[in-house]
Nucleic acid binder design. Structure first.
Lengths: 229, 229
DNA sequence: TCAAGGTAAATTGTCGACAGACGACAATCG
DNA sequence: CGATTGTCGTCTGTCGACAATTTACCTTGA
């Protein structure tokens, strides 16, 4: 059987339904069709999609644990709202995770395999910076960071990161303009790559720390002005 | 109306069922009645409890996102298994969180309110160290740490901590003996309190770092010997 | 004896239905 | 006119039932 060497077919997973619905809802939230605070009634969704409420309900619980929805007893799901304080604590957590992840990548000598990939990501980033769609830019940016966290080898870091990343994407759905000159953020990422390549654990930590602290400052203060308005 | 000044009744929450079941399952897992790898069939649980499968299913999903159960498509829930590597990554994450939490407690000047509470916790700890039940000792220990994380003021830190704490409790259900001389761990916690009271951010960080690193080393190595056996 | 295949039992995924809870609006009373 | 109470529609929490899938057991054949 050649199947043992390379799987010809993916095992077609027939669980789906609830996961399909979860993906669909996620897209709707991230794309802004569903805005923070909006009600997500399982009966309504079920009617629209032509399925029963059970899988919708499960999808809701899934997105609740992902932090995209919140549920009130006997009142159902609502798209999660965030204020600048939430966002700040989010970035503080992200800081902890990614700082150590970067250090771990260096410490465990996992650098060699990923430097090239990271450079590719930046190319994508520069490319997408010409795009109007902010959501794509954020996506590519998060992809870059995710690769580092994934390469750290700590599965739990990745789990937390993914959860934070989805929440960050939701926030960006609320922001219309790009913060910086196109391509600037992309170029800044080279500093991280250099730090990783240096082989110095502390340097990697410091680079990541700086990078995310700047982002934190930018995003949170921007969000705060949105609130007062 | 006197009601406006002081509420006469607590709002009685009638949500329950699925949450009740979740608590029940959690207890069963933490107490060791359900062991890692065991199957948790929703139909069986539902029959035993005399309820339909729906709330059991939800409880399962709840505990899945809490990290106590895992689910395979069309095969249901199983109590999560952990190897020493999982445990190590868990403690590494815990290290990141609590280190910063301790620093934050100092930085935000939240020390005053909690020092006394922390001392009380230690009294409880010394008390429980006479107890045979390891699970109680771990519980009180986690309570101490939780208080610090909670006082940090970063809600997300607390969220991650609670998730980790429940997983740690599951692991301890597999360990029979106490690591150290009774009361030693309790006394070690005074070092953390002193560091917090010192008002020096870095000192708090270092104390917490040391404390958890020791625990990490102890628990992981102990778990590793269990595996090879 | 053991591997392969087939059938039956058990379990999950999904559905439609019903009772209770909640929110909004109309009705009532001061 | 304002506040409280009653009513109604909608939605959630829960249930029992059915179809699809997995698991366990048993048969069969070499």
């Amino acid at each position: 059987m050649n199947r043992s060497t390379k799987p010809l077919f993916q095992p077609l997973t027939r669980d789906a339904l609830s996961q399909q619905i979860a993906r669909m809802l996620t897209d709707a939230i991230v794309s802004g069709q569903l805005r923070p605070g909006d009600r997500v009634a399982e009966s309504v969704i079920a009617r629209d999609l032509g399925v029963s409420r059970a899988p919708v309900r499960e999808a809701g619980r899934l997105l609740e644990s992902a932090g995209l929805l919140v549920s009130h007893a006997n009142r159902g799901f609502f798209v999660r709202t965030m204020d600048s304080e939430d966002l700040d604590s989010l970035y503080e957590l992200r800081l902890c995770i990614e700082r150590e992840a970067a250090a771990r990548v260096v410490r465990e000598a996992r650098v060699d395999g990923i430097i090239d990939k990271l450079r590719h990501q930046i190319d994508d980033m520069v490319e997408s910076s010409k795009d109007e769609q902010l959501i794509f830019q954020i996506g590519v940016d998060l992809q870059f960071h995710r690769l580092i966290v994934e390469s750290s080898g700590n599965a739990r870091f990745l789990g937390v990161f993914d959860k934070l990343a989805s929440e960050i994407q939701v926030c960006t759905a609320l922001i219309e303009r790009v913060f910086d000159e196109p391509g600037l953020v992309a170029r800044n990422h080279y500093l991280i790559i250099d730090a990783l390549a240096s082989g110095d654990e502390d340097e990697a930590r410091a680079a990541m720390d700086y990078h995310i602290s700047v982002a934190r400052e930018t995003v949170v203060s921007h969000f705060r002005t949105l609130e007062t308005a």
